[in-house]
Design a protein around this nucleic acid. Sequence first.
DNA 1: TGTTTATCTGAATGATTGGTCAATAATGAG
DNA 2: CTCATTATTGACCAATCATTCAGATAAACA
Lengths: 195, 195
Amino acid sequence: MARKLEFDKDEALQKAMLLFWEKGYEATSMKDLVQAMAINRFSIYNTFGDKKVLLLMSLKHYRDHVLAKLIAPLKADLPAEICLENYFDRMSKQLSSASGRLGCFIQKTGQSHISSEPEVADLLQSMLGDLRSALLDVLARVRKEQAFKIAYEDETMADFILCQLQGMIVLRRSGKKLALVERQIDLLKTTVMSW
Amino acid sequence: MARKLEFDKDEALQKAMLLFWEKGYEATSMKDLVQAMAINRFSIYNTFGDKKVLLLMSLKHYRDHVLAKLIAPLKADLPAEICLENYFDRMSKQLSSASGRLGCFIQKTGQSHISSEPEVADLLQSMLGDLRSALLDVLARVRKEQAFKIAYEDETMADFILCQLQGMIVLRRSGKKLALVERQIDLLKTTVMSW
DNA sequence: TGTTTATCTGAATGATTGGTCAATAATGAG
DNA sequence: CTCATTATTGACCAATCATTCAGATAAACA
């Protein structure tokens, strides 16, 4: 019937995501996106929509491709305690790695002025919600499996973990010392998993 | 000899700071600043410099007027344990208050693309450094006064507190539930001050 | 009071912003 | 082969961006 798209939508979205992630929404111009996505300006508008919609789609791409992999250890078919430990180790590795330099796309977008747009704010909150419920699920399993004693309510504990990880990402971005990451994760572990 | 400035430099800087703090560097236009500072466009350039310099001055204003007050409890002439407790209470109140909505100017600027400018990055790091050394000082005093046992090295502990606070600010901005703040601070307290 | 000197003002700079358009090219069903 | 449909293209739009300028203004001291 009609002409086909000459590019792969997901590939283009991946490139848009990386750019938004690195530079932030406002500092990323359509010109930058055209260059990075290697698509004509109008094709972006035609395929995805305006800049804000493109950000929303990039965020969803992040949720489905990046966040999902980070959360995966929590959902593994293993004892809850192991899941949690694997998750911490995964985060520790991620934070220490060179790619950890980018920080968290959710956090970055949350600080941008575009997050005052309800659609963006809602999506960001639901993404943090995904992470939070994965933590809550694993904590519930810990209780059921009686793996260790949890000192506080699950919600408090989940938020505590979330705070600590987000805080580490903040400091990771503005600090030189990566050496501390491991010790911070250790401290987090022993705080949460105190027998 | 010559004419005087018609406005108060510090007042103007305060207004610039609030705008940068709320909207972020890139989303704040010179037009916005002219309006908020109630000074003519050229007077801003003439008095402070270009947009980047104005940001640097706003950050220093934040350090001297906002951050200094938040750190003050740590430097009070009281037993270290009381200082730390007062500091936590202060942060708890700040985070729960309406003005806590703004979050942390350092954190926000750190996520902005302008933080890739060395001058900005250096200033941000030195500001976080101020906070960190205040925490280290108080922890050293805790040891000397034998107020309570500190489970980890001071540096680890200071970073832990820093992470937790920065993390709470991240979540505070993108969440609805302020109720959790108090419980988080409680958990932080008992983690740090474990006898 | 007159001269000096810095501040103030609104207009204007060229560059860049996000977004659009008409013309062209490819596609595949009839 | 024909033709309706959709993608691609580079030029184009008005608006806004940060920054600057010349001229008007007003304070300070001799």
